[in-house]
């Protein structure tokens, strides 16, 4: 990976002056992924926090060509962009080499945009799809998605008197993408001192064909924690193995980070108000349930990665 010093000499591709929350993780994801590209970059974004906060007319924070179409179709839209690029390149109307990136939140990726994403990946377009996964529909006020954590409080599956937040565990979208047998699938998080996300984005850009990155992105608004702790929560997600870091390159699964000491899930959870209700003694069994599921998934992943 290029050093941060070298990266800092590059042109800034996302300006300040956007309207994301103070401490927002989504804009960090976008900046880091774009910095990892050694070629000009063209971006498509799904409707969502990142898109809405960065493109309030007449102010755009994007210093790269950027297109927003709708919520569920970032992957299909970008596949059209890449197809036009191929056609125009064949005709000699475009000469530049370009990297193509789509950004979508977990709502736009796990839920409403899953079909469009699956289609684009299966068709083999040369593009990178990045899911900035903050585990809920933050843009519209913290509604649950299929990425939302078990027992998390959201506004459409709230923690109430008889129901402690979300019923279900999040689905394994990274695994679903790996099942497409595309050349590169990665799971990353912001905050790692070794710049895991930048490394993975660099690797993805170096590979021809469809690539998918699922990036865990702490959200201070929806998770309710102190704004300066965005990266710290990312690291805790990796250290608790709630969000393991790995990649699948040409079908070969490999862990890219193993915590020296696996921390209990509560180290991650209890820094956030969305899990506050789980501190009650009567909800202790839910914590146990979550810990067991995290352990089970982690062991399964280790097996897949040949780590045991």
């Amino acid at each position: 990976m290029a050093t941060l010093k070298d990266l800092s000499k590059k042109k800034e591709l996302l300006t300040g002056g956007h309207r994301a929350c103070a401490g927002c993780g989504a804009t960090i994801v976008a900046r880091q992924v774009m910095l990892a590209s050694d070629k000009p970059i063209v971006v498509v974004a799904a409707t969502g926090c990142l898109e809405v906060t960065t493109t309030i007319f007449p102010y755009s924070a994007w210093n790269v060509p950027f297109l927003h179409n709708a919520f569920e179709n970032a992957a299909a839209t970008l596949s059209g962009v890449t197809a036009a690029y191929e056609a125009l390149k064949k005709k000699g109307k475009i000469k530049d080499d370009i990297n193509f990136v789509a950004f979508g939140g977990d709502g736009g990726t796990y839920d409403i945009g899953l079909q469009s994403l699956s289609g684009a990946m299966e068709r083999g377009h040369n593009l990178l799809y990045v899911c900035y996964n903050n585990q809920a529909y933050m843009n519209t006020g913290v509604q649950r998605s299929s990425a939302t954590a078990r027992a998390a409080h959201t506004t459409t599956e709230p923690a109430g008197k008889v129901k402690p937040g979300k019923d279900r565990f999040p689905k394994d979208l990274t695994g679903i993408m790996a099942a497409h047998n595309i050349p590169y699938v990665g799971q990353s998080v912001i905050g790692m001192v070794n710049n895991d996300l930048i490394k993975k984005a660099e690797k993805a850009f170096s590979i021809n064909g469809p690539k998918f990155l699922n990036v865990f992105q702490p959200c201070r608004l929806g998770w309710a924690y102190k704004p300066e702790e965005t990266l710290e929560l990312g690291r805790l997600a990796a250290d608790t193995c709630i969000w393991p870091l790995y990649e699948v390159v040409d079908g070969v699964w490999k862990l890219t980070y193993k915590p020296r000491e696996k921390k209990p899930v509560t180290d991650f959870m209890f820094k956030q108000e969305r899990f506050r209700h789980l501190k009650k003694p009567e909800n202790k069994h839910i914590i146990d349930e979550i810990q067991n599921e995290v352990d089970r998934r982690w062991e399964e992943l280790r097996k897949r990665c040949g780590d045991m």
Partner: peptide, 20 residues
């Protein structure tokens, strides 16, 4: 120490840098 950790993690692209 110009490690650039603040720069790479700033959500608002507000850390000013020049020549590394």
């Amino acid at each position: 120490i110009h490690c650039m950790r603040c720069w790479i993690n700033c959500p608002d692209s507000s850390i000013e840098v020049k020549d590394g």
